[in-house]
């Protein structure tokens, strides 16, 4: 059986109708509005996300995909050159070659770049939904099996890591993985906005494209990430503060 084209996979992943659990999230928009950001600032805020936190997620997905591409079974290890070997675990940490990394290193790099617990929790919740999907759709893909094994041993993985595994399993090019991440984040916020504020539904669609355009100058740089250290660390302190406050609210429409 021929596989679906990578573009089809990207469209599937970016489709809000996909049952991945994304509908419960506003990509930090509800926290921002409840934190006092006026609706008029949403376009600038989307621009900010597309050039900061979205790139952290995108870089995490790209490095994960590089690590998992062409893996066999077990926990893969990567090298800065991007090659991954499918050796099962069991090599003591002390003897791995300099610069080599594994899935736990990618997760650690992502977590160190995501200081707000509320945002880490939200990303792991989304990762769980994505992994359920990936486990069903690409059950035999070594990249997905590596994730399932890691998930069982170490707990839920963030969405960006699961997306990276899907990219590895389906041959989604790195640059498109970056664009998909940016688009998905912006579109998630835009569709949440329509549930929170009365607005002409076409207006946020333009903002989504503008946010994607703002990220375009960073796409190749992020797509070139090969090691966990390469992952962008562009933070968003105000968003992090809003996310923490939102996580304590009982009256909210979205999970995060």
């Amino acid at each position: 059986m021929t596989s679906a084209h990578a573009l089809s996979v990207a469209m599937l992943l970016a489709d809000a109708r996909l049952p991945s659990g994304g509908h419960a999230h506003s990509a930090s928009l509800e926290p921002a509005l409840l934190g006092g950001m006026p609706t008029s600032e949403v376009p600038a805020w989307l621009f900010g996300r597309a050039t900061t936190v979205s790139l952290v997620e995108a870089g995490t997905a790209v490095v994960t995909a590089r690590l998992l591409a062409g893996t066999a079974v077990g926990e893969p290890r990567g090298t800065p050159g991007g090659t991954a070997v499918g050796e099962p675990r069991g090599v003591p940490d002390g003897v791995r070659p300099a610069g080599a990394f594994d899935l736990a290193d990618v997760v650690r790099a992502w977590a160190a770049r995501t200081p707000a617990p509320a945002l880490r929790d939200a990303a792991r919740l989304l990762g769980r939904g994505y992994l359920r999907l990936a486990r069903t759709l690409w059950a035999d893909a070594p990249a997905v099996r590596a994730l399932v094994a890691h998930d069982a041993a170490h707990g839920p993985l963030p969405r960006a890591v699961v997306l990276g595994a899907v990219a590895a399993a389906t041959g989604l090019p790195a640059a498109d993985t970056v664009r998909l991440t940016v688009y998905d984040d912006a579109q998630t916020a835009a569709s949440a906005l329509l549930k929170l504020e009365p607005l002409d539904p076409v207006t946020p669609a333009r903002w989504v494209l503008e946010a994607c355009a703002a990220a375009e100058q960073h796409v190749l740089r992020v797509a070139a990430c090969t090691t966990p250290e390469d992952i962008p660390a562009s933070g968003s302190p105000q968003t992090e503060g809003w996310a923490q406050a939102h996580a304590l609210l009982s009256q909210r429409l979205f999970r995060a």
Binding site: S28, A32, M37, E41, A44, W45, F47, G48, R49, T52, A109, A112, R113, P115, P232, A233, S234, G235, S236, P237, Q238, T239
Partner: peptide, 17 residues
């Protein structure tokens, strides 16, 4: 902890600062 914040006084970005 790895964090890189970029800010410009003449171009405030909501969500960042």
């Amino acid at each position: 902890l790895v964090e890189e914040l970029t800010a410009a006084g003449d171009h405030p970005v909501p969500g960042v600062l």
